[in-house]
């Protein structure tokens, strides 16, 4: 029984990824037909940016908007106060150290995805960075590979790898707690989970606490960002959706 369920899920995901974009392409195509007379759409856009999809398919919009609202409340009532309190009582060098530590142990995800994108040089860079940071950088608490060797790490994930293979977004999803994603990126993150060392901690209590520290620490650097986005927006849901899609497209392009 459980097996059939998984198979059905897999089929849904795969068809979603491949056909979602086809359907979307079709619908947007008919849209662009009527929009062809845009006096202000210029060739320069196409000249410097490879054509990006004009939007993203959003069949779950109603549910997504609901989740978006819930996340909004969750941010102001829970995540923000926790991150702020943590920030107040934790000195900045400690927070940066923790951030570096978790970035460092996340090397497998970056290295594997660079490899999958056929970028052996970047894979090598990731591995060298990891070795340097784990030793000279005291278990990755500092980041000498960046400060002294000027090696920038590539924030690669499986969603981007799939994107670079030409897999489209599928459709837009707002996840509870985690926020914006698409079918492709969500699928990717399942794969990336296998490369996350934290998920290999056997004691589940320890694993949950470690993940919590990682998340709260990360959020402590980003308190205030969401407010700014909301402040600038007239339609926050559309603003975040479009921002996410544009940002991901750019990352994939790199």
């Amino acid at each position: 029984m459980g097996q059939t369920k998984t198979i059905i899920c897999m089929i849904l995901i795969i068809t979603g990824i491949f056909f979602g974009d086809l359907i979307h392409a079709k619908t947007t195509h008919s849209q662009t037909d009527t929009q062809n007379d845009w006096a202000f759409d210029d060739e320069f856009d196409d000249d410097t940016n490879p054509p990006t999809t004009p939007g993203v398919w959003d069949p779950l919009e109603k549910l997504n908007r609901y989740t978006f609202k819930m996340n909004d409340k969750l941010y102001f009532w829970c995540i923000k106060p926790v991150a702020q309190t943590y920030k107040r009582f934790t000195p900045s060098p400690v927070r940066i150290g923790i951030l570096n530590f978790f970035n460092n142990i996340n090397m497998p995800q970056r290295a594997v995805n660079c490899m999958l994108q056929l970028r052996p040089k970047d894979t090598g860079k990731e591995i060298v960075s990891f070795v340097v940071n784990s030793t000279v950088g005291i278990l990755g608490l500092t980041n000498p590979s960046k400060t002294y060797l000027h090696m920038e790490s590539n924030a690669e994930d499986l969603g981007q790898t799939l994107g670079s293979y030409g897999v489209g977004n599928g459709f837009y999803i707002v996840l509870p707690f985690l926020g914006s994603s698409t079918l492709r990126d969500l699928t990717g993150s399942f794969g990336d989970n296998y490369l996350d060392p934290v998920n290999y901690i056997e004691d589940s209590y320890v694993m949950i606490s470690v993940s919590a520290v990682r998340t709260v620490n990360k959020m402590s650097f980003r308190v205030g960002e969401y407010e700014k986005i909301k402040d600038m927006a007239f339609e926050p849901y559309s603003a975040v959706k479009d921002g996410y899609i544009q940002y991901r497209n750019k990352q994939i392009e790199k």
Binding site: G55, F234, E235, S238, A239, G243, Q246, Y247, K250, Q251
Partner: peptide
């Protein structure tokens, strides 16, 4: 900013409104 075009972002929002 980081690949997110201001004009395009507001266009999506304004369209909706």
């Amino acid at each position: 900013i980081e690949g997110v075009s201001l004009v395009r972002n507001y266009r999506t929002q304004f369209n909706k409104i």
